[in-house]
Design a protein around this nucleic acid. Sequence first.
DNA 1: GTCTATAGCTTGATAGAC
DNA 2: GTCTATCAAGCTATAGAC
Lengths: 212, 212
Amino acid sequence: MNKKTDKASTPQRILDSAEALFAESGYDGVSLRMITKLAGVELALPNYHFGSKLGLFRAVIQRRSVILNNERMEALNALSDRAEIEDLIEAFIGPFLRRSLFGGEGWRDYARVVAQIANSPRWTSEIMSAEFDPVAIEFIRRVRVRFPVAKTEDVYWSFHFLLGAMTMTFAQTGRIDLLSGDTCHGSDLSEIHLRMVPFLSAGFCRLCKGST
Amino acid sequence: MNKKTDKASTPQRILDSAEALFAESGYDGVSLRMITKLAGVELALPNYHFGSKLGLFRAVIQRRSVILNNERMEALNALSDRAEIEDLIEAFIGPFLRRSLFGGEGWRDYARVVAQIANSPRWTSEIMSAEFDPVAIEFIRRVRVRFPVAKTEDVYWSFHFLLGAMTMTFAQTGRIDLLSGDTCHGSDLSEIHLRMVPFLSAGFCRLCKGST
DNA sequence: GTCTATAGCTTGATAGAC
DNA sequence: GTCTATCAAGCTATAGAC
């Protein structure tokens, strides 16, 4: 039984348990029985509250992507049209980064689920585009304002590289800890923030400034 | 039945079919029944040739990672100690990129499987580190020769961002095609090569040159 | 090396009582 | 909204004939 969810409503308990398990083993690696056992509820309840296993999966994603997208959109709208690329990238990745760092296990697990769906063709249109395209489009619009001479393709590809680096990093797979012999820590997101924004900003500048 | 594998040996046919299906739906999203049906072989044969479903999964990865790692190591060893960061990155990602582009469906599917395991904590030590750490370590060693003043952490994190951008890009999820309204094409890897090496090189320079 | 048959278990979903 | 019971289908793995 999940300590954090003992007093939460049934749908919340189900969402929390599903999120934790999906993060570790993916959509098909988890059964409704595993989820309901962890949540301490009956097997029939996920289907009652969410219609189906797929409905539950979508609900797990949507619950936090709504919050995240609001925060990102607000951060972008707080910037002037003359904002530097560093500010734009900070607005896009900052909310996700801070949630992963300070938001507890739930947000960390959510980031792991996002990394999985972002890297599989299976969920591309069904979930990724549906959930994240509006903010992505606004981010790209502002990058083009910042770099008016940039080719359209260069902006999209820069965003794509950002997306890959971001999703893998926030998923905290443990790879960099292992590879670096514990010199780097995937869970120390302040260690990350210091490096991800400059790294990606430099990439955008090189590609979008027009001066090759 | 798979046209390409009609005349191949049974283990090869099984590997090819498993690769294609794992690429789309991941390890748990695919059953031995689906694999053997696509391969046109009996249900018992994967277990005979590979011991278990997990053994088959490992074999799918290893078959091509051995080839890939040899090519990458050779490309790195062909460089002098004074090679530019662009050359180092080209040596690391070039072989994977060219295989994905010219290697046919098998290599494309392999890249999709790699993206999934690279983005899940579940396979980090078991597969990712076991298969890819040696080349990663050699790449990082050479980056540190190129940037002697760089902090250890900056080099590892730069590599991590490279890894995220690379695996998602080569997985060809279709996201950038959809997002860009078919302006960019995830399958046009020459379009990618032109942008990924500069983007990542700029990131490495910003982080590892020591001049913030 | 291949094929048939099957054991033993788990799966998602639901019908019906409360 | 919850709980029990259950269904039909699917799952991995293997034993034994050829």
